[in-house]
Amino acid sequence: MKASEIREKNMVELNKELVDLKSELFKLRFQLATNQLENPMKLKDVKKSIAKVKTIIREKELSGAEK
């Protein structure tokens, strides 16, 4: 997911996206531990997506505080 797509979402959607990504990361880690993970690069992608969402949430919090 691109940062521009994430920035278009509101805070409720961003928080839901964050919860979904964390859930997906948990499932991927479980698959990795049980040797069922087919694509280990998926872990890296999900972690990056979580970081993007958290960054944009923080940007929106700071911009809201300045107003």
Rank of each mutant, 00 (worst) to 15 (best):
M1Y: 12
M1N: 01
K2R: 03
K2D: 05
K2N: 09
A3H: 00
A3I: 15
S4I: 15
S4D: 14
S4V: 15
E5R: 10
E5N: 12
E5Y: 13
E5K: 11
I6W: 02
I6S: 08
I6A: 08
R7S: 14
R7Q: 14
R7T: 12
E8S: 07
E8C: 07
E8I: 11
K9R: 14
K9Y: 14
K9D: 10
N10M: 09
N10V: 11
M11A: 10
M11C: 01
M11I: 13
V12R: 10
V12M: 12
E13N: 04
E13T: 13
L14S: 06
N15Y: 09
K16V: 07
K16T: 09
E17D: 08
E17N: 06
L18C: 01
L18Y: 05
L18T: 03
V19Q: 04
D20Y: 06
D20W: 02
L21F: 14
K22Q: 08
S23V: 10
S23A: 14
E24I: 03
E24Q: 03
E24F: 03
E24T: 06
E24C: 02
L25Y: 05
F26I: 05
F26S: 08
F26Y: 04
L28C: 08
R29F: 01
R29N: 15
F30H: 06
F30N: 09
Q31S: 05
L32M: 04
L32Y: 06
A33V: 00
A33H: 00
A33N: 00
A33R: 01
T34W: 01
T34R: 04
T34V: 09
T34S: 07
N35I: 00
N35C: 00
N35Y: 12
N35K: 12
N35A: 12
Q36T: 02
Q36V: 00
L37H: 02
L37F: 03
L37W: 01
N39G: 11
N39S: 05
N39Q: 05
N39W: 09
N39R: 08
P40F: 00
K42T: 10
K42M: 10
L43V: 14
K44G: 13
D45S: 09
D45W: 11
D45A: 07
V46F: 05
V46Y: 03
V46L: 04
K47W: 01
K47Q: 10
K48S: 15
S49N: 09
S49V: 01
I50G: 03
I50E: 11
K52L: 07
K52C: 05
V53R: 09
V53F: 14
K54F: 07
K54W: 08
K54D: 13
T55E: 13
T55N: 10
T55Q: 08
T55R: 06
I56A: 04
I57Q: 11
R58T: 10
R58K: 06
R58H: 09
E59G: 04
K60H: 11
K60D: 12
S63H: 05
G64C: 10
E66L: 07
E66W: 06
K67N: 10
K67F: 12
K67D: 15
